[in-house]
Nucleic acid binder design. Structure first.
Lengths: 360, 360
DNA sequence: TTGGCTTGAGTTACCGGTAACGTTACGCCG
DNA sequence: CGGCGTAACGTTACCGGTAACTCAAGCCAA
């Protein structure tokens, strides 16, 4: 059944190989390969015969061998993201997967949290599969990790965060697809500063010592300053117009809930609250409702993300909509282009949209 | 720099290979391989030297070659899930990835929706990578797909749904890790039937012609019948005690919101509503609030999933908590055991927990 | 001293594809 | 009818590892 030129050779694998198909079809391995892949170099009859035999024999191509033997035919891509617990990355990943699978690329994914060493370990491990491209979540990272990404010889795209724009990038940095979080925060800051005098508070989370969404907060703060919002002064060491709190927790409804409670207890005068994301903002709303605080009368609330919970609340949440699925798809497209050698811009801004809800 | 026994041979790849390291270290490829992998058959000095050289030369192992050359060393696993938009599968996937990566297995993931043909295509494509195991989401599938899974020669585990239990399984079926959705629905049904007389309604969604969570609804319905809840009779073709509606939409807050509106408009007498998941249930709550309906006074509401939104609402949601992360981890463990040849039970029930909230 | 056992390290033969190149057959054209 | 271009197909040489086997050296006990 399994055949080989040397009859005494032992076959490790029991499955049907290209050689088996070729022999049974009475053609060479090469011809069979071409016929199965549908390139050129065979007659119609030959192709039909090979396909028929392959089907009959239950031939399953071995992409391991293909990728190994060619070093151009490897259609693996690595995708490295911090978490899947937030719906954020789930949707981005879905967008990525959709596009990649549509052109027969296989994603291998890693969920690495916010720890640089874990990320680096995963990247090394992923590279040993010789993927033809890499997708990583854009975030602040250690010099070692950044250097690692810069020294890659395969195309790489950073998603989610544009990290300050073109001028701050080095040539060797990966492409970026996402939006400018600083600007998104600033836009919300301006919007709120035009409507409220403050004082302003912010509730976010810290994961493995990194403050998530730090750039948005920076943009937010900067916009408030530009709009002439004064820093409260007292118990505000960095003299910022925003009183912040960072919970050591996952970004979740519940974190928003008790984070708001903590912040308001320590600073009962706060009148405008900005959150790391919509889920936390909704948690904050729930707390305010429970305490009998009117929104936005007593406390104005703004979130981030445009998650669909915000749209159905009795009072619609004011937020910044981010287009997660689109980021995934756009990033995948950009990477595929780069892999195929087409020119691609280093920065792709998919934008955001300020959603004027009723909570702020 | 790149070396080869035949000096005139052309190297396709430019990267450092095992042979390069071995030559520079003055040992054979095989010894270098063993030293790098840390098996046996080398002295401590040899190993240290090889590691040092590999480090110096920037050697990156080629797992493609390793997997190809060994057919036991392939530590790829395929993970096939319907969607990542619901946080449900995100958390399961995170659990899976955690466990797999901890033993250096690489997951390749596919997001295939609820279409049998798409799933089958993905499975075929994934198999061509010769993974050592497969994780698929447990759900109703076509005979073709079920047969395909049964004929696999590699270990496979179905997650999420125990699908009726041991007696309904065939020997060739994949292992299952999850919980019994019928029982979960039945438990909720009994709980509600003991507190309310009805009439009962259910709001779910249909994706590509499959009703998600159908087994839970079946269990729910069956429990109501057992508790003596009568079918309303009129406009209820299948004579069920539950008036159902299935939206052609994603399971989301918004779907729950307008689904509830539709159902209540058509059936204003409904007094107890059961939902596909917590998000939809919360959407329903929001609608009720907006219509001035008291919960649970006018309408009682129960969800499913134990998503954290339910825990922070002013009135805590009555629901069934499912342990998604644990399902992922348990499933990965089971698959790894099976791959390593250890005995594993065909069914692993991670259970659920009825959460007695304040909405029902 | 000898023989057996352990241990370190080399040798060889693949694994199942793809790329590159060589050869043959055949149609087209003048 | 000869020259030529191209389509069809065969051959061969890898790719970068791993498994199985072999062998030499070192060690210890008898």
């Amino acid at each position: 059944m399994t055949s080989s030129k040397k009859p005494n050779s032992t076959r490790r694998s029991t499955s049907v190989s290209l050689a088996d198909v070729a022999e049974r079809a009475g053609v060479s391995k090469m011809t069979a390969s071409r016929a199965l892949r549908g390139t050129t170099g065979y007659s119609a009859e030959t192709r039909a015969l090979v396909l028929k035999i392959a089907e009959e024999m239950g031939y399953v191509p071995n992409r391991l061998a293909a990728a190994f033997g060619s070093d151009t035919a490897n259609n693996l891509v690595g995708i490295c993201i911090p978490t899947l617990s937030r719906e954020l990355y789930g949707q981005i990943l879905e967008g990525l997967e959709n596009r990649f699978s549509s052109v027969n690329y296989q994603p291998i994914v890693g969920v690495v949290g916010y720890d640089d060493e874990v990320e680096l370990a995963w990247l090394n491990s992923a590279l040993s599969w010789r993927p033809s491209g890499l997708v990583v979540a854009g975030r602040e990272r250690s010099l070692a990790n950044r250097t690692f990404l810069q020294s890659l010889t395969i195309p790489c795209v950073e998603i989610w965060n544009l990290c300050g724009g073109k001028d701050t990038m080095e040539k060797s940095d990966p492409m970026r697809v996402g939006f400018n979080h600083f600007d998104a925060g600033a836009e919300m800051g301006r919007y709120l500063a035009n409507r409220y005098q403050g004082p302003f508070g912010y509730i976010g989370v810290r994961d493995e010592d990194v403050n998530l969404g730090a750039e948005r907060l920076a943009g937010f703060t900067s916009a408030l300053l530009e709009c002439g919002i004064p820093a409260p002064g007292r118990k505000n060491k960095n003299n910022s117009p925003v009183t912040t709190t960072f919970l050591k927790d996952k970004a979740s409804f519940y974190a928003g809930y008790y984070g708001t409670e903590q912040l308001l207890t320590a600073n009962p005068d706060l009148r405008v609250l900005y959150y790391l994301d919509d889920n936390m903002a909704v948690g904050g709303m729930m707390l305010c409702q429970q305490k009998g605080l009117k929104i936005p009368g007593d406390v104005a609330i703004a979130g981030f993300g445009g998650m669909d919970i915000g749209a159905i609340l009795p009072t619609r949440l004011t937020t910044t909509a981010a287009f997660r699925l689109r980021i995934g798809k756009t990033a995948a497209d950009a990477l595929l282009k780069k892999i195929s050698g087409s020119p691609v811009g280093v920065l792709t801004d998919v934008g955001t949209e300020l959603v004027r809800g009723e909570t702020a």
